[in-house]
Design a protein around this nucleic acid. Structure first.
Lengths: 174, 174
DNA sequence: CTCAATTATATTGCGCACAATTAAATTTGG
DNA sequence: CCAAATTTAATTGTGCGCAATATAATTGAG
């Protein structure tokens, strides 16, 4: 192994942008707009990969609380205000019922939330924290702190970066 | 440490959890630290949600190519250099064999790649683009352009934002 | 050469994400 | 008042992501 002809980091991690035709030896394609398809230039892949990595970083912390990362996000919403409909949860998390229904059922099976139909409108399902679910907030307080230690970014840049990412994609309201 | 990353005033929505009055904080939790758990302050949720949304934006474009977004990412890697082992693909995409093996089998079933054992080292599996897979590069060139139209960000800020995100989490190499 | 350790991929099981569909309750129009 | 349209969840089916485990090939020590 290590045969590895080339590949190594000849790809200028920085941003040369503007191409400039640095004589790329693409043996196959005649003349592409290949810069556009380079993985290391993709903002979307950076987001996708960062999201995957974050889930992996949360896992050991959340295992101790008996939560997955999406479940933890649902708990964040419920800790802010507890009786919520599935729809409100979906709006807050930008997830649909196909994701939330089984997730909430698992959380119910674990004793963190209770689910019941809204008597005033039987189409809706109300999700409410149990005492155990509310009590989990206390040990969860250390999670963001611990996770922030993995960020290779000064704390005062976290807020601006978050706001840039939030502004990147306008909210869909179909 | 890290009391909170601040960013402008603390009440954005003004939604109050209880009675709607001026929030007597003494009622529920003793001393909160609750700012840390607010969903709208979470950098990680911003990344998670942006990643989900991006996958949804890619879907209609990639459906026309017969690809999912993770499959498209694998194709980006293979379009850069085609015979690759599964391990090299996993390194490039930061995904493990449990994800890649079935993904590559589906791509093989769709005629985009061929998979074969490396004769020099039978433990490895070599993945190579088929002619159809290589030909798909051409129509894929328009995908990044079309997708970039959804970004609510000036083009000259895309590169810096991407690099910030890439720098956020140091690469794991265990 | 032999057997243990290492390496590379595959398999299994669980939990998301989401499109498409279904089902039930509510609202609305005639 | 009733039937059609709308709203809200749940269900179904596909495709990731990843931990844990299994399997097979290569390497390495004696």
């Amino acid at each position: 192994m290590t045969d590895d002809q080339d590949t190594t980091g000849q790809d200028t991690t920085g941003q040369d942008t503007s191409g400039g035709a640095a004589a790329p030896p693409s043996s196959s394609t005649p003349q592409d707009g290949g810069e556009l398809l380079r993985l290391d230039r993709q903002l979307c892949f950076a987001l996708y990969s960062a999201s995957n990595r974050i889930t992996r970083l949360y896992r050991p912390l959340l295992d101790k609380l008996g939560l997955t990362y999406p479940q933890y996000l649902a708990m964040l919403v419920l800790w802010e205000r507890s009786p919520r409909t599935v729809g409100e949860l979906g709006d807050a998390l930008d997830l649909d019922s196909g994701t939330l229904t089984p997730l909430l059922k698992r959380m119910e099976a674990n004793g963190l939330v209770a689910r019941r139909r809204d008597p005033a409108d039987e189409r809706r399902v109300i999700v409410e924290l149990t005492d155990a679910g509310a009590a989990l907030r206390e040990p969860a307080l250390s999670v963001p702190v611990t996770l922030a230690c993995h960020f290779a970014l000064p704390l005062d840049e976290v807020g601006p970066l978050r706001d840039r990412i939030k502004a990147l994609l306008p909210p869909e309201k179909p």
